[in-house]
């Protein structure tokens, strides 16, 4: 999909060509919608975030200047956009420290095969705080320090939230299967 995003298209987008904007949207919307779905609480929220994200991307296009890969650059904007929405909605209220839930004894539990659909279904059931940390750490690959800065929490909180999020994920997954 990203193979088709050419340098020409990016330059046209920077110039503000609306056809180029539409092309870029068509090429990347699925990928970006995936991000929005992962972070937002429902499909309606994801749709709003997707729209907001694209408007922001096209507005900030001049700042890209060939810094690496357009898709990765865009993804960062969408993640920030989604996080802002979460913050606005004040869903991220769980900032308690390490609790009893920390060690639930799921270490031996391994998942061999799990589809994207199953992951999404399980993620939807998690608390938004858990989901956000899991998304940022496991999938996006941010460090705890980065996550702490992005969410305005302590690094320790980020770590404990992640541990609890993993446990909660496996718990939810086991419930269904």
């Amino acid at each position: 999909m990203s193979q088709n995003v050419t340098q020409d298209l990016i330059e046209k987008c920077i110039q503000g060509n609306s056809n180029a904007h539409k092309k870029l949207y068509e090429l990347t919307s699925k990928q970006m919608y995936g991000i929005c779905l992962r972070y937002c609480k429902d499909a309606e929220d994801a749709k709003d975030t997707l729209q907001e994200g694209y408007i922001r991307v096209f507005g900030k296009m001049k700042q890209f200047e060939g810094k690496g890969v357009i898709e990765a650059w865009m993804r960062r904007i969408f993640v920030n956009c989604a996080l802002e929405n979460i913050r606005v909605n004040k869903f991220y209220t769980e900032t308690s420290d390490i609790s009893e839930e920390f060690d639930l004894g799921f270490d031996s539990f391994t998942i061999d095969r799990i589809s994207q659909k199953e992951i999404m279904e399980t993620m939807q059931k998690l608390a938004l705080g858990y989901r956000t940390v899991l998304n940022l750490y496991a999938i996006e690959g941010f460090s705890h320090a980065e996550i702490a800065e992005m969410l305005g929490i302590n690094e320790g909180t980020s770590k404990s939230q992640l541990a609890r999020a993993r446990a909660a994920f496996i718990k939810e997954y086991k419930k269904v299967n």
């Binding site: 990928q31 589809s115 994207q116 992951i119 999404m120």
Partner: peptide, 14 residues
């Protein structure tokens, strides 16, 4: 597993 499965998660967008 999450990384491998979800990094290229691209569902049909509205």
């Amino acid at each position: 597993i999450l990384k491998q499965q979800m990094q290229d998660f691209a569902p049909d967008a509205p």
